[in-house]
Write a protein that binds this DNA or RNA. Sequence first.
DNA 1: CCTATCACCTGCAGGC
DNA 2: TGCCTGCAGGTGATAG
Length: 277
Amino acid sequence: MPELPEVETVVRTLEKQISKAKIENVEVFWDNIIATPGVQDFKDKISGQSFEGFGRYGKYLIFTMSESVLIVHLRMEGKFYIRNKDDRYDSKHIHVIFHLEDGRQLQYHDTRKFGKMYLYNKEANIHDYPCMKSIGYDAFDEELTSSYLYSKYHRSQKTMKQLLLDQAIMAGPGNIYVDEICFSSGIHPLTRGNKVSKAKCEVILQETRRILNGAIKYGGTTIRSYTSSLGVDGRFQLHLKVHKREGETCKVCGTEIKRIVVNTRSTYYCPTCQKKR
DNA sequence: CCTATCACCTGCAGGC
DNA sequence: TGCCTGCAGGTGATAG
C-alpha cells in the first residue's frame, strides 16, 4: 500500500492511535528491514523513546521520536498493525515488533520484505537525511511549482510516465496515480517530456494534487489486499478512471481502456482522451 | 547521461 | 491437483 495517499492514511491512523506512546523494546525478525543503523544499535537507540510527531514526505513515513527520527518506507506491501499483548495473529509476515509501554504492540507486516526502516539523529531539513538525499519535492510541498516541473521536463526525451514516476523530481505518485494523473491531464503516457508545455505542467500539478487529495479523502486505494489492516484499506479504487481497467470503457468517452508496458510498469490509458505523443 | 536487467521476496491467478 | 509463468502499489545497484 505504498503511494502518497496510502502513506498519508497510515500516518493519520497511527497518529490517532499511538501519539505519545513510549517504546519499551523492539524485536526484529528480518534484519534487512532495518536499513540503518545496525539491528542491535537500532533496538538499543529506539528503546525508551516516545512517538512525538507523525509526518510524511513522498512515500516515506516520518516519525519524530523524543531523541531521533524514525523513517519508514513501506515499498510494495508494508503495513502497520496495532495489537494488544494477547491478541492472536498470524506472525508469519510480522518482521518487526515495537513493544509499547502500555502493553500494546506496533507490528510491522510485510509479505515481500521490501520495506525499510531508518533511524537517524534529528536534522534541520528533511533532505539532510541520507535516505532522502535523492528525493525531490513532495507533491504537496509549497516550494513545488509548475515552473519547476517544466524545468525538469522540457529538455527530457523520457516519457511522461517515467518522469512522473521519478521520485527525484516529484515525490509521492506511484504507478496507480501516475496513470490517473496522465488521464486527467489529457497526456498520453508515452509523450516525451520535451513535448509538454509550461501550461500543461500547471495542469499536471493541479490534477496531481486534486487526485491525491481525493484519494486521501477515501483513505487511499486498495486493489490487491490479502488482509485488512487497521484503517488503511481505502475505497479510492472505485474512483479510478483508467488504472487496472483494461478492456473496460472510458468513463468520459466510452473508448476501450488500453494497457501497455512502459519501463516494465503496467500502464493504462484511454486512446481517445489521451492523444498526442 | 541513458536504458535494460536483475536483485530484493512472496503469493496469487491463470493456463495446461 | 500440480506445475509453470506472469504479475504485483517500489527502488537501488550494475552492466553496457
